[in-house]
Amino acid sequence: MSFLGGRSNANASAVNYDKMEMAVTELDTVTDFFNRMVSSCYTKCVGGRYPADGDLNKGESVCIDKCVAKYNEVQKKVGEKLQSRGAAAQASGAAPGSGSAFGSL
């Protein structure tokens, strides 16, 4: 659950919770999120430049650490925003605002 940065929500039905839990913990999803983080932080901290050697220098290493932290923050923020907007409900075809399927994340 920590992966999507949300908190459990007593209003969510157990059924939806389980289904989403399953989907979220599916390896594919985690791998996809992780790969995007790797790519984004590479672009921000390492990429583009012609590499002088095969090591990460000090600046790059520090940049990567902050980048991962910020990427995770952004993930949380976006998750909360989607949750408050009921985007999941919309996406899953439920009446908008009716439930909080995503609230269970």
């Binding site: 983080m37 790797v38 932080c41 390492v46 095969g54 090591d55 990460l56 290493s61 980048c67 991962v68």
Partner: peptide, 11 residues
């Protein structure tokens, strides 16, 4: 290649 692997490990 080396840098990418090290980057990926650090992330």
């Amino acid at each position: 290649t080396e840098k990418w692997l090290k980057h990926s490990e650090r992330v």
